[in-house]
Write a protein that binds this DNA or RNA. Structure first.
Lengths: 230, 230
DNA sequence: AAAAATATGGACTCACTAGTCCAGCTATCG
DNA sequence: CGATAGCTGGACTAGTGAGTCCATATTTTT
């Protein structure tokens, strides 16, 4: 009878203070279990009992930590997104070369290939796709989920990628019209959406890795065909 | 006690014979109601009782016609898709000009704008998006749903659009490299994915229609920037 | 007009789930 | 060491939803 939902709920707006009550190790275990079970079964079908079992924790503990199913779902979503965003950010630091160091168009292509490939891999294979589907499916019933998703994810990564690509344009390595540069995140969207064709159904039986690379390359080449200076 | 699921179920493979038992008007009413309720509430939350009520039909009648919830869902999905595909096909007939009649690049741009705009409007606003989300969300649990979706929808429309675009390339109005032409549906995908940026979250408060048009134009211009001959 | 097929509505079974309550157990920390 | 916060497991409430059954009514076909 510790925390039977004291706060009057502060969803809509922003960050619930959420003092980290209880043992953090249990909290982690529950969060992970929630990830597993929600992603496997979907929001409605997933049972708190199943999550508690998966986390090797009693049901009451789940309620002590997270209050109710919906808040548990949100906490799990935030958690997965935070870790993914960190991953993607690191990726951009690591794989994106200093524009001034690129010697020729082949270098540029290689860099984009590397970056777009890793980006797509992280964002579109792995648990994030499934999670996105869930959020999408639930968003009809919990509209703020959508907004939260964007605020928490794409709104953090896309401007970053867009800045990197704009820098290439400024350095003369890409020839991008001003109308495009002026629209927030558009350039980043164009690159990732194209490379995202990598996500279209890959026939079973086909070598996934090879096909994946091929499609990322198609996307990057389309992007370059539009914006490579000549 | 007419049809308590006699057939041993023939999902996985192809078309259930499904002789149209019962009154077709009731069948239509149920299908429409199923559309409304499933799309509003999602698969799990939607109740057969609610659907029956919406269709002004008794619960038993629903079961007589469709056997169970899952088959009802599939029948509804097929129905919506069939009607959408018909719509899109008609659109292509209507809006896509004879390549030989196009006099200049401005004509081409206008034609693509028209076609892509209508296409995106039909496919990405309206009930189909919501349905797609549902199928996506359920596909974890009923894997054949995905395949059925593609077979029934994109597999019918994309090759058609691709053929139209290829014709433009053949007529010299677009300059598309052979590697692209050789990949099935790639060209069509590139156009629609680009114009599909129109679907990215439009801020509430912004004039939807204007913003929509602007984005479709961005997509088409990107496409043309890559493939317009010079 | 009789026979056959369908539709109705309401009662019923069965399974399942969110969330609560509680009495006893365990780890932690002053 | 003893108090306290957190954890456990299981029993319990209250609600919901799929699918069935059936006696009665309505519609369609012959």
């Amino acid at each position: 009878m510790t925390a039977t939902a004291k706060e009057p709920r502060a969803h809509q707006e922003s960050q619930e203070p959420q003092e980290p009550q209880g043992n953090p190790r249990k909290r982690r275990a529950i969060l992970n279990a929630a990830g597993t079970v929600f992603l496997r079964d979907g929001f409605t079908r997933a049972g708190i009992d199943a999550i508690a079992a998966e986390a090797k924790v009693s049901k009451q503990t789940v309620y002590n930590h997270f209050g109710d199913k919906e808040r548990l779902f949100m906490a799990m979503t935030d958690d997965v997104q935070d870790r993914t965003v960190a991953h993607v950010m690191e990726l951009m630091d690591r794989d994106f070369p200093d524009p001034s160091k690129l010697t020729g168009p082949e270098d540029l292509r290689a860099a984009l290939l590397q970056l777009a490939g890793e980006w797509i891999r992280v964002v579109y294979t792995g648990p994030l796709v499934a999670l996105r589907k869930l959020v999408d499916a639930e968003s009809e019933h919990h509209p703020y989920l959508q907004q939260r998703w964007f605020t928490n994810g794409p709104s953090r990564t896309m401007p970053r990628l867009n800045r990197l690509l704009s820098a290439l344009a400024r350095a003369g390595l890409l020839d991008v019209p001003a109308e495009v540069l002026d629209v927030p995140d558009l350039l980043a969207y164009q690159l990732t959406a194209m490379a995202g064709s990598a996500v279209r159904r890959i026939e079973p039986g086909v070598d996934f890795e090879a096909e994946f690379q091929r499609r990322v390359a198609q996307g990057v080449d389309f992007f370059l065909r539009a914006y490579a200076p000549r």
